[in-house]
């Protein structure tokens, strides 16, 4: 059998604001737009994905938080409405999601074999988290590919950022073994922001861009430092510095997504494609992609 591979890795933040601003038919609220720097970046990355041959999207999301191990969606279809618990005024999304259960089980088994505590999620009433939905919708609004969702084990809370890095690395290594054995072409998605301190108030019109800016300059400086390192292909260095960045910016990478994805991709030393950066309710959000294929890798921004 042909060896499976990762054909693209994406850092894909999931503020529900970007879906709200798109006004897709699945989402109930109506907006007048907003956050174009992110949305247009997503559009560009989605166009690139259309030209890539792949079988499924595998996303690690910090909004399925598990304290007892790492869990994997384990049923073929989830149809429901997802209402964001934080921004219900912006995101009430009717979804119909297809899961690549075979891939999920293979990843679960590989992780378990590596000593990671794991669990398949097979309750049909389970509501898929909005992080998964936002990232996947923005990358593939046609929803024509199956997904695998991996929960975020909260090892940062229970132990430390350093332990999170170790455990997410082990998970990435295990997931890569499962991908290679599957023979499939896979897109990996780390669904999260960079700096992650929110404003605790909201403008009367949420898409009023005159009110949108980063929470503070320190967060911006950290975000730019990481993006610069991504541009230079210094991903091992990014992962090494991540614990300090998480501590200082409450970075959502605490959920393990970026570390997991970079570990699975062998810590890329080639430049990331940067598609956009913008704040959303004060948080710092970058859209980036790592293309292992040198012939299709681009300088985007």
């Amino acid at each position: 059998m042909v060896k499976g591979e990762v054909v693209l890795g994406c850092l894909a933040p999931h503020p529900p604001h970007v879906v709200y601003a798109e006004n897709p038919e699945q989402n109930e609220p109506f907006s007048e737009g907003g956050w174009e720097a992110l949305r247009w970046g997503y559009h560009s990355l989605a166009r690139k994905l259309k030209d890539i041959d792949y079988d499924c999207i595998v996303v690690l999301t910090p909004h399925w938080q598990t304290y007892v191990g790492t869990h994997f969606l384990g049923l073929e279809r989830f149809q429901n409405i997802s209402v964001d618990p934080i921004f219900p005024n912006l995101f009430r999304f009717n979804h119909d999601i297809t899961v690549d259960v075979e891939m999920a089980e293979a990843m679960h088994d590989a992780a378990a074999e590596a000593g990671i505590i794991t669990k398949m999620m097979r309750n049909p009433d389970f509501r898929v988290d909005y992080g998964t939905i936002v990232s996947c919708h923005m990358l593939n609004p046609d929803w024509d590919k199956p997904i695998v969702t991996i929960s975020s084990n909260r090892s940062t809370h229970y132990y430390s950022n350093e332990v999170m890095n170790e455990q997410a690395t082990a998970l990435g290594d295990a997931v890569m073994k499962a991908i290679e054995a599957s023979g499939k072409k896979v897109v990996l998605v780390a669904s999260h922001s960079l700096s992650h301190r929110h404003f605790v108030t909201e403008a009367p019109l949420p898409e009023d861009m005159s009110r949108e800016h980063i929470y503070n300059h320190s967060q911006y400086v950290w975000d730019m430092k990481l993006i610069d390192m991504m541009r230079r292909g210094e991903m091992q260095e990014v992962i090494d510095v991540l614990p300090e960045m998480i501590e200082q910016t409450m970075a959502e990478a605490e959920g393990g997504g970026l570390t997991w994805m970079m570990a699975a991709m062998g810590m890329p030393d080639y430049p990331a494609e940067i598609y956009g950066y913008q704040s959303v309710i004060g948080t710092g959000n970058a859209i980036a992609a790592w293309d292992p294929n040198e012939s299709t890798r681009q300088l985007v921004l």
Binding site: P85, K119, N123, F126, E202
Partner: peptide
């Protein structure tokens, strides 16, 4: 029930749904 934008107060007169816990779904 965490919130970010201030404090949220449930005001739906009759909320109906089926909830599943993130960790203990089994």
């Amino acid at each position: 029930w965490p919130s970010i934008v201030g404090h949220q107060i449930q005001a739906h007169p009759k909320p109906v749904f089926t909830h599943v816990d993130d960790d203990f779904h089994f």
